[in-house]
């Protein structure tokens, strides 16, 4: 028996919004420690790694490890049937071929359940090596989303160059070029609005706008985003899922020829 409950379905809605652009289907691996999802997009350019810890749920029970393959578009359809403040309970029997989403209104005057067919996805599990990154940037997630959106107007790629002075985002194309420089903030009172840079060595890499903009769909989850970069390894873009865990996106850089 698997059962996981969240007091408000909006968190699950936000998590789904954050991954549905990149993945059509995904396997949710459920164990007593929580729910894990790890999948590359079809073109093997990006990888999504989602961790939702069991102790972050309002109720969590997982008697036996189960992997639930779900179509994300179908999941989105079902979650649309829930109000943001409805309690959501995800339930599945061991060896089940369906998963049930139960929504309960706060007043307990409406209870609905939706059963969704599970899929056999046979996804590979990948080992992600620990990396000491040359640069780790923390900045407001809204600012990062704004920069990705603005620079996408200029070209298909965004250059991210990090030095101890700050981070420079740049793009160029037919209409011209754009540069946005973000400096480390000295005011640490408002942590959510701060920009911090931990730099061992300067790094400059180029990434596809389309993927960065997909990652920013996670913005509603967290006020801050963390960008980790080193030469010759994927960029890691991490958002915290408050109280539950995190979502990490890995993106292969563009290669100069």
């Amino acid at each position: 028996m698997f059962e996981a409950r969240l007091d408000s379905s909006v968190t699950l809605k936000k998590v789904l919004e954050a991954i549905k652009d990149l993945l059509n289907d995904a396997s949710f691996d459920c164990s007593d420690t929580g729910i894990q999802l790890q999948a590359m997009d079809n073109s093997h350019v990006s990888l999504v790694s989602l961790t939702l810890k069991s102790d972050g749920f309002d109720k969590y029970r997982c008697d036996r490890n189960i992997t639930m393959g779900m179509n994300l578009a179908s999941m989105v359809k079902i979650l649309k049937c829930a109000n943001n403040d409805d309690t959501v309970t995800i339930k599945a029997q061991d060896d089940a071929d369906t998963v049930t989403f139960m929504f309960e209104s706060k007043k307990q005057d409406k209870i609905s359940d939706y059963a969704m067919k599970l899929m056999n996805l046979d996804q590979e599990h990948l080992g992600i090596p620990d990396t000491d990154f040359s640069c780790v940037i923390r900045m407001p997630s809204i600012e990062f989303a704004r920069i990705c959106r603005d620079l996408a107007q200029f070209g298909e790629s965004i250059g991210i160059a990090c030095t101890k002075e700050g981070v420079k985002f740049s793009a160029s194309g037919d209409i011209g070029s754009a540069n946005v420089k973000i400096a480390q903030t000295s005011n640490f009172e408002k942590e959510e609005e701060s920009v911090t840079i931990e730099m061992q060595e300067p790094v400059a890499l180029t990434f596809a706008c389309q993927y960065l903009n997909s990652f920013t769909k996670a913005t509603p989850l967290s006020p801050q985003v963390q960008l980790s970069m080193s030469d010759n390894v994927p960029l890691v873009v991490e958002y915290t899922v408050p109280e539950l865990g995190h979502i990490r996106y890995y993106l292969a850089p563009k290669i100069e020829e």
Partner: peptide
């Protein structure tokens, strides 16, 4: 000219 890199090779298949 830049080409899009792939993730294959960065991760190990468990």
């Amino acid at each position: 000219v830049t080409t899009q890199g792939r993730l294959d090779g960065f991760f190990t298949v468990l």
